[in-house]
Simulated scan of single mutants.
Amino acid sequence: MVSSMFADLPLWTVALLAVSSFLGSALSAALGVGGGSFLIIVMANVLPPIALVPVHGVVQLGSNAGRAWLTRSHRENAIVGWFFAGSVVAAVLSLWLLNQFDASFIPVAVAAFILYLSWGPLPNIGLGRKPWGLALGGLITTSVSVLVGATGPLVSAWLGRDGVSKWQYTANFSSCMTSQHILKLAVFGVAGFAFTPWLGVIGLMIVAGYIGTKVGLSLLDKLPEQLFKTAFRWVLTVLAARILYRFFFAA
């Protein structure tokens, strides 16, 4: 009975997902980015490929919406609005893109993308103060998000951090990610993904993520950012490498 509430997943998997949601949200709130990448790479190790991106999207929607609400007084509405406009265009295009992609390759795409985000060049693009730059960012990152889920670092690079406080950045970033996840979930809904069997897992992870957000915000400005980011990069690398090894060598 308990198992059926959580998409017939083993209870240890459900517990792992809840803890990962808590840690991912706390990381995003405290360091500004990274929690979504951590969560999806954990999920890619234990969930069916077809469920990976949509379930992650709902959970991240809950996490980012909570963070956006808690920091709403610092949000710059023009930035969020222009990003949303580009994301709407991406959502329409993604309906076609999703049908061209074999679901069995999604974990591999996620792992490769996470490795690039961890070790590849990710410049501070900083186009997020210009309307056309924001709309373009919404278009590109939302399109990518439909396939690999965790585009938080790309959105962060696009928005840039120069000239804004940590609180402003967190509010803008969380609001942009919230709009992106809403549209992505609409795409998967239209494509026919059945969310109902996953509602128990999703609900538990959202609650854990909200608690993690509260804890992470309390640690904002207190954590040694560079030390955590270095350790975090290696954790992501190990988890991504495990997925690639299983796909190419342990099949």
Rank of each mutant, 00 (worst) to 15 (best):
P224R: 04
K214I: 15
L17N: 09
L219M: 14
G152M: 06
D221G: 11
A250E: 13
K130N: 12
G66Q: 10
S21F: 00
I125Q: 11
P49F: 07
V33Y: 03
K229H: 07
S165V: 11
G133S: 03
T151L: 01
M43G: 06
F173A: 13
W167Q: 15
N99W: 02
G36D: 00
W158Q: 03
G81C: 04
I211C: 11
F101Y: 09
L27K: 05
L47S: 05
W119G: 08
S73I: 06
S28F: 03
L134I: 05
L183Q: 01
C176H: 03
S21Y: 00
A171F: 06
G149E: 01
G86V: 09
L204N: 07
F83Y: 15
A250K: 10
H181M: 08
I140T: 11
W119V: 14
A194R: 14
R246Y: 06
P123F: 12
A85L: 15
V92W: 10
F195G: 09
A15M: 05
L9E: 01
F193C: 03
A103N: 09
A109E: 02
G62D: 01
G212F: 12
P49Q: 06
I114F: 00
G149D: 00
F249E: 07
I125R: 13
E225P: 04
S165H: 13
G163H: 10
S179N: 13
A78P: 02
V88E: 04
A112C: 13
Y169F: 14
L52I: 11
R161K: 15
L95E: 07
F188L: 02
W234D: 07
A90N: 01
K222R: 15
L31K: 03
F6I: 05
G57D: 01
S63F: 01
A240E: 13
F249T: 05
G200M: 08
L236Q: 02
V19L: 12
A112G: 12
L27W: 03
V46T: 12
A65G: 08
L223V: 15
Y245M: 08
L185H: 03
R67H: 04
G128C: 09
T170I: 14
V14E: 00
S156A: 14
L98G: 08
S73C: 07
W158K: 04
G216I: 09
V187Y: 04
G200D: 11
W158A: 09
F113S: 11
G24C: 00
A241M: 12
L115I: 13
A78D: 13
D162M: 08
L154F: 14
R75N: 14
N77Y: 03
V187M: 02
L219G: 08
S218N: 13
V164A: 07
W132S: 10
F195Y: 15
A26D: 00
V146I: 12
W132C: 05
V148T: 10
A157W: 02
D102S: 14
D162H: 12
L154A: 10
I202G: 07
S37Y: 00
A29R: 07
A191W: 07
P197D: 04
W167A: 15
A15H: 02
W69L: 10
Q180T: 12
L217Q: 15
D8Q: 15
A18S: 07
L183I: 01
T170Q: 11
L159S: 04
G160R: 11
F188G: 02
P49G: 09
I211N: 05
